[in-house]
Simulated scan of single mutants.
Amino acid sequence: MRRLLQILALELAGALAWPVAAWGGDSPPTGRTLGDAQRGALLIAQYQCGACHAIPGIASARGTEGPALAAYGLRSYIAGRVPNRPDLLARWIAQPSALVPLTTMPDMGVPEQDARDMAAWLSEQR
C-alpha cells in the first residue's frame, strides 16, 4: 500500500508540473499576463472562437457548442480541471488536448504568441 501511495504521489507531481514544463521557454511561467490583450481580442475573432463560444465584447461570437466565456478572468479553472492562469490558458488555447486529452475543444493550430495574446484578453475579462 505504501508503494502505491508513493507511485500515486509521483504521478500527481508529474501531472501538475507537466503543463508548465511542456509549454517550453527558459524560465517557468509566472501566471502574469503574457501577451497583448488588444491584439488578443482581434485574434479571438480571427480564429472564430465565437463559432462555439458566446463571448461578450467579440462581434458575432454567439456560439452555443462550448461554454460562454463571459467574465472569464474570474474563473478558477480552465475546462474544470486546469488552474486558470494566463500561461496555462495560452497553452490550453494552443493545444487543449495536451492538457485535457478527451476535451471536445479542437486543436486549432494557434501559434504560441497568438495564444498568449488571446489568453491576455480573456484573463482581463471581469
Rank of each mutant, 00 (worst) to 15 (best):
I55E: 01
W92M: 11
G57K: 12
G50T: 14
W121R: 09
G66H: 12
R62N: 12
G109Q: 09
V20Y: 08
G24T: 15
Q95I: 12
P67M: 11
A22P: 01
C52A: 06
L69V: 15
P83E: 06
M105Q: 09
P101K: 05
L4H: 03
G50I: 14
A68Q: 13
G80H: 06
Q113S: 06
L99D: 07
V82Q: 05
W18A: 11
Q38M: 08
V82C: 00
P28K: 05
I93V: 15
M1C: 04
I7P: 00
G14P: 02
L43D: 05
G35Q: 10
A54P: 00
A120F: 04
T103C: 03
L69D: 01
P101C: 01
L102R: 10
V20Q: 07
A115T: 13
T33D: 12
M118R: 07
P111C: 00
R2Q: 09
L34A: 05
P106N: 02
G25A: 06
P86E: 04
A90T: 14
A79T: 14
I93K: 06
L10M: 13
P29K: 07
M108W: 01
D114K: 07
M108R: 11
Q38Y: 01
L102W: 05
R2W: 04
I44R: 03
A41L: 14
A13K: 06
P106T: 10
L89A: 07
I44Y: 00
D107L: 05
R85P: 00
A68C: 07
P111T: 08
A98I: 14
A94C: 03
A37T: 13
A120P: 00
A94Y: 02
R75K: 11
A21R: 11
R39N: 08
R126L: 08
A21Q: 11
L16S: 04
P96H: 02
G109D: 03
D87F: 05
R32D: 15
P19A: 01
A13W: 08
Q95C: 03
R85T: 15
M108E: 05
G63V: 14
G66W: 12
I78A: 00
T104N: 06
D36S: 03
T103H: 03
Y47K: 13
D36N: 11
T104D: 09
A13F: 08
R126N: 07
